[in-house]
Each structure stands twice: as structure tokens, then as C-alpha cells.
Design a protein around this nucleic acid. Structure first.
Length: 647
DNA sequence: TGATCCTTAAACAGTA
DNA sequence: GTACTGTTTAAGGATC
């Protein structure tokens, strides 16, 4: 019996000089040798009393757990008849992590009962010992000290009875008549949680100190695993006991994160019913049909304390999962950040990837894939083509939007073309990946990248094939598209020269082509004002700043700066960026093109500038942009502003 | 739902 | 006649 073991423990301890120092030594040094101080003069101070109590509880708990671990209980042991196992996770809990209420949930009724009985025996023995000790050595009456012990005994008993009563009320355990008798007066007492807490903390401290040999059920997992289990286990329903009084499998299993798929839930038509059983935490009652389940739900899970408590726990589960989700999201962000910062890593792409499949592009391009190469999956469930994202710049938004269909929105909010190409130039040269930019953007980039800001059609072709492996096939298709774009868009100006016709870019027209929607918006203006340091600029404009510069293609340092900072946002359309990229181009970081060069040097089209920059009052936007040195850009921005501002 | 953008395809004309 | 260049139209998908 557990009581006998505890009693024997006390006897052993009592065989020492004072019965306390011995316990202290057995408690892994956690006790104080001063525990016998009170005996020196025959007085036991409250501190000593408490210490003695803790030491004895410690000893009892240790023995109790070792018995459970090694199975040394006698055949008649009550605990053995009803196998009691202290949850592994409990061993790793700190006192701050566990409450008496949780302990009630942790331990099965036999466990808790045995533990309480053991503690009672310890305290009873302690009272006897103290009584004997005081009579032997001090000949002083017990007085208040003994009374305190007796009160604690009563409290322990009350706790035990209350626990059993609770279990009975919840229908989780049925005790033989008489065993669960509860003194009426005990129900009126306060819950002695502190006492139980002391016992539990003692048990925990035992496990913490019992590093060798660890109980059997500790050895299979590492501490981290146990901590993980603890965390999960703490999320278990309030009462992990089955009706047999034992811990259910849920007690040590993962919370039902995705135990039922959305499909199941839909088919079951009730989130708490699936696979013919009740999904109420810890229930698993079999229900043949929905009607039976409803009946079961109303009967077994009505609005009562138990259901309310379980609901609260479920809320904690959800909260915990949300926290976990936040942590994992943060981790994902960090991972993406890390990957983004290292664009030159090996790119294991060996199949054509469509990073910018538009509309029917993927379907038709899929037809154009070489037979020897596997076609990219077109299923939305197995996306492989990040949208408008280079291989090294994968934003969370792109992960959310990955799929076979390119979204034009992502076209606007992806990595700007300059930085993208700068970072992944080698990738696009070698990988059969469709660049995530429009033909117009690529053509413009090609032209502006050229020394004279002008290219013949054939040179544009060559640039495409040189820069992108993707355009080394299906030449008829994309060349037709290039020609189509050159003719279609007014931003591309055909100029006759001595060598023949060359194509140039009219930046004004290019920016007109799709004026940024946010231009002139109060939000943007506000951001522009407050974000002169670029810290709080509109996201699109930040990305646009990141794009800054085709001229940065050969400037790794600047590119890295761009990728490490602004590019992280991955927002901003190349069109938009074309407006703002000149901001940076005008800065000292641009070794190649000046904004004028970039935007107006090749301004071939003789279109009169409608607005004289120097002769009109600057709007707020213009002021900002001019502060950022954006010649010509304020023109485009102001084009979006009310006309009165331009006057 | 309509407008817009983008892509693809195709037809056609002009030129070397 | 062929290939290339350039223009134009149309259709379909996606987005706003």
C-alpha cells in the first residue's frame, strides 16, 4: 500500500537523529539542514514545520512515483490494480505551470486518491512523530503545531473528497458506496489549493531532481519532446479522463489540429460530428447518425460547468494555436528574408517555370513546353510557379497567391524589374523561366539598358534571348508579341536613323500608360510627407524605390542594399516604379543613368511638355517628389492631381 | 458587370 | 518567293 510505503519512509527518516535532516539529504539537497533547528530547543517554528512538511511530501512523492515507474508495488497495491501513471509531462512542469485544478486534470482519480492518501499518511506519521518527538525530547505539548497538522489533514481529506465528488458529478468515475463519502462540512470549506499545490510542486521537483535513473516512462523522450508534450497536453480538454477514470488517449496526444478536414466537416454538417462519433473534446461517443448525435450532444454536452470548462479550454487551444501560427508566420518571414538576401544561391530549376503566366498564357505555354521537359503543374493544389516573383524573392503574398494563373495585381506589386533582373540575372539566363514582367516592361528595360537607349527590333530580340532562356524557344510567339507591343504602346517610339529603324522609349507615355492609382491619394500624400526617410512610404513607392535603377544592375552593393531593404516589400509595379525609380536614379548611387538620361534622354517623340515645371506652383506631391529629386516625375504625379493644383 | 490590361494569335502590308 | 518588320484586329483571361 502506498500508505505503508509512506509510513516506512517516515520510519526510516525517523530512525535518524531528527527525521528531518535525513529527508533533506534525500531530497537532492533541496532541504535545509536547519530543519532540525526547531528541535534544539524543543520548538518547531512555522517555517520548520512547513519545511518538514515539504520534505516529507517530497519523499513520499518520490517514492510514490518510483513505485509507479518501476512497478514495485505489491500485488495488493491498489494502485497496481488500477495502473497509475503520472503523466510524463507533469514531470517537466514547473510549479508555475501547473495549478491544483490542472493537477486534478492530470492525475486520474486513482492517481490523485493514492497521492492524497499517501500525503495523508505522511502527515499523520509526521504528527505522530512530532508528538513522540516532542514528548521524548521536549516534553512539550503539541499545541497549535499539532492542531495545524490536523487542520491540514482535514483539508487534504476535503480535497480528496471534493475531487471525488467532482468526478462523480461529471460522471467520470463511480466509486463504491462509502468510499466516496464526503463529510457534509467539508463541502463548505474553501478549496485547499495551496496544499495540493505544495504536493504537486514537490512531485515536480522530484522529477526535476531525479535525473538518474529516470523513471521508465521518462526515458523514451528527450526533454524538449516532453516540454512539447506538456505544452500540447496543457491544451487538452479539462477532463482527459475517460469514463473508466483513466486518461484518454487525448491526454498525451496532439490536440486535434486538423483531425477533421473541411470536407469532413461539411459532409458531417456539424463541426462536432464526424466519422460517426462525437468530436467533443474527450468524448468520442459513437453516434450512428446525426439525430443520435444531436441527442447525445444535448444530453452529454449540455450547458453545465463541465462543458463550460471544456469550452474555455478549447478557447485556450485556439489561442495557443493562433500564437503558434503567429510564431510560424514569423519564422516563415525570417526564412524568406534570409532567402531573399542570398539571391545567388543555386537554383534547382530545370524545368520551365512560368512566373508571369497571364490569362491563357500558361495553358498555351504549356503546349509549347519541350516534350522532354515536364510541364509545370497547373493544378492549384500543387503550385510551382510563384507569381511575379523571381526565384530568390518570394514574398508572403506570393506564397498566398501562387498558382498557375498570374494575377495582374501581383504584376503590380512584385519585385520591380530592375532589381529583380539584377538579382536573378543568371537565373533567367539559365533557367527556362518566364520572366514575371510584361512584354512592355521588358522591352522598355532592354531599350533603356542599351548604351544609346535605343535598339533595333533584332537587338531587342537578341536581348530577350540573351537575358532569358525562356525566350530561346517559341520565337514566333514572343517575337510577335514584342512587335505587337512595340506597335501597340505609344511609349515605344520608332525612330529612323542611318542604321535603319530603332525603337526608343517615351517615358512619359510609358508612365501615362498606366498611371499609378494611388497617386494623389490622401494616404499616399500623407505617407510621402511622413516618409521622407522611406520608412513609411507607401508600399508601392517603396518597392518602386527598390526598383530604382536599371543602372544598378552592375552595382552589387547597391543591389544588395536594395534587396535587403526596400525589396523586402515586393510591392510596386514596374510602371509605378518607373515613376519613382528615378528618385534613386537621381541619387548618388546611380553610376549609370541620370534621371534625365533614364527618362528623357531618349525622349524622341516631339510631344510638348504640357506643364512647365519651373513656372507652376508645386503641389504637395510635387514638393515631396522634388525634394527627392525626381525631375519629370512630378509631372506624372501631378497629372493625377486636381487640375487646380497644377495651375 | 463593364473597363482595362495583358497575352496570344492572326491577317495584312511593306521592304530587303 | 521568302523572311523580316510593322500594323492592326480579335479573343480570352485576369484584375479592378
Amino acid at each position: 500500500m502506498m500508505v505503508e510505503s509512506a509510513t516506512e519512509t517516515i520510519r526510516t527518516a525517523s530512525s535518524n537523529q531528527n527525521g528531518v535532516s535525513s529527508l533533506s539529504s534525500q531530497s537532492d539537497g533541496g532541504g535545509r539542514e536547519g530543519g532540525s533547528n526547531g528541535d534544539a530547543n524543543g520548538e518547531i517554528s512555522p517555517v520548520d514545520l512547513l519545511h518538514l512538511q515539504q520534505q516529507q511530501a517530497l519523499q513520499a512523492a518520490r517514492q510514490f512515483l518510483l513505485q509507479q515507474a518501476t512497478g514495485l508495488s505489491s500485488p495488493s497495491n491498489e494502485v497496481k490494480q488500477s495502473p497509475v501513471q503520472v503523466p510524463v509531462s507533469m514531470a517537466m512542469m514547473t510549479p508555475q505551470m501547473i495549478t491544483p485544478q490542472q493537477m486534478q486534470q492530470i492525475l486520474s482519480p486513482p492517481q490523485l486518491q493514492a497521492l492524497l492518501q499517501q500525503q495523508q499518511a505522511i502527515m499523520l506519521q509526521q504528527v505522530t512523530h512530532t508528538h513522540t518527538h516532542t514528548h521524548t525530547h521536549t516534553r512539550q505539548p503539541l499545541g497549535s503545531k499539532q492542531l495545524a497538522f490536523q487542520q491540514q489533514l482535514i483539508q487534504m481529506q476535503q480535497l480528496q473528497q471534493q475531487h471525488i465528488l467532482n468526478l462523480q458529478r461529471q460522471g467520470l468515475v463511480s466509486l463504491p458506496p462509502g468510499q466516496g463519502a464526503v463529510p457534509i462540512q467539508s463541502l463548505n470549506h474553501a478549496y485547499p489549493s495551496s496544499l495540493l499545490h505544495t504536493v504537486l510542486c514537490t512531485i515536480i521537483s522530484v522529477f526535476h531532481s531525479a535525473s538518474k535513473p529516470e523513471p521508465v516512462f521518462f526515458c523514451s523522450r528527450g526533454r524538449s519532446e516532453m516540454y512539447r508534450r506538456i505544452t500540447q497536453w496543457q491544451l487538452m480538454p479539462v477532463c482527459p479522463f475517460s469514463r473508466s477514470g483513466r486518461l484518454t488517449r487525448h491526454a498525451f496526444s496532439l490536440p486535434p489540429l486538423c483531425c477533421s478536414s473541411a470536407h469532413e466537416e461539411h459532409t458531417a454538417s456539424h463541426p462536432l460530428y464526424g466519422h460517426g462519433e462525437c468530436k467533443w473534446p474527450g468524448c468520442e461517443a459513437l453516434c450512428e447518425d446525426m439525430g443520435q448525435f444531436i441527442k447525445h450532444l444535448n444530453n452529454e454536452h449540455a450547458l453545465d460547468d463541465r462543458s463550460t470548462a471544456q469550452c474555455r479550454v478549447q478557447m485556450q487551444v485556439v489561442q495557443q494555436l493562433e500564437i503558434q501560427l503567429a510564431k510560424e508566420s514569423e519564422r516563415l518571414q525570417a526564412m524568406m528574408t534570409h532567402l531573399h538576401m542570398r539571391p545567388s544561391e543555386p537554383k534547382p530549376f530545370n524545368q520551365p517555370l512560368n512566373l508571369a503566366s497571364g490569362g491563357s498564357l500558361l495553358k498555351r505555354d504549356g503546349e509549347g513546353f519541350p516534350e522532354s521537359l515536364p510541364h509545370p503543374p497547373t493544378s492549384a493544389t500543387a503550385p510551382i510557379t510563384p507569381l511575379r516573383q523571381g526565384p530568390s524573392v518570394i514574398s508572403s503574398s506570393s506564397l498566398h497567391g501562387v498558382g498557375p494563373i498570374r494575377r495582374r495585381n501581383s504584376d503590380k506589386y512584385c519585385t520591380p524589374i530592375a532589381s529583380e533582373l539584377a538579382q536573378n540575372c543568371e537565373f533567367y539566363k539559365n533557367a527556362d523561366v518566364r520572366p514575371p514582367f510584361t512584354y512592355a516592361s521588358l522591352i522598355r528595360h532592354a531599350i533603356l539598358e542599351s548604351p544609346d537607349r535605343q535598339l533595333t527590333l533584332n537587338e531587342i530580340y537578341n536581348w530577350f534571348t540573351r537575358m532569358f532562356a525562356y525566350f530561346r524557344r517559341n520565337t514566333a510567339t514572343w517575337k510577335n508579341a514584342v512587335r505587337h507591343n512595340l506597335s501597340l504602346h505609344k511609349c515605344f517610339v520608332r525612330v529612323e536613323n542611318v542604321k535603319g529603324a530603332v525603337w526608343t522609349v517615351d517615358e512619359v507615355e510609358y508612365q501615362k500608360r498606366r498611371p499609378p492609382k494611388m497617386t494623389g491619394s490622401p494616404t499616399l500624400v500623407k505617407n510621402m510627407i511622413s516618409g521622407l526617410g522611406f520608412g513609411s512610404l507607401n508600399a508601392s513607392y517603396q518597392a518602386a524605390l527598390a526598383e530604382s535603377s536599371l543602372s544598378l544592375l552592375n552595382s552589387p552593393t547597391l543591389v544588395n542594399n536594395s534587396s535587403g531593404g526596400l525589396n523586402m516589400l515586393h510591392v510596386g509595379h514596374d510602371d509605378v516604379s518607373s515613376t519613382v525609380e528615378q528618385v534613386n536614379s537621381n541619387g548618388s548611387c546611380s553610376p549609370g543613368l541620370s534621371p534625365q538620361q533614364y527618362g528623357h534622354q531618349v525622349h524622341v517623340k516631339e510631344e510638348p511638355t504640357e506643364i512647365e515645371e519651373d513656372s507652376r506652383p508645386m503641389s504637395l506631391m510635387a514638393s515631396v517628389t522634388q525634394n527627392l529629386s525626381i525631375p519629370g516625375d512630378e509631372r506624372d504625379m501631378e497629372e493625377e492631381l486636381p487640375t487646380e493644383e497644377l495651375e
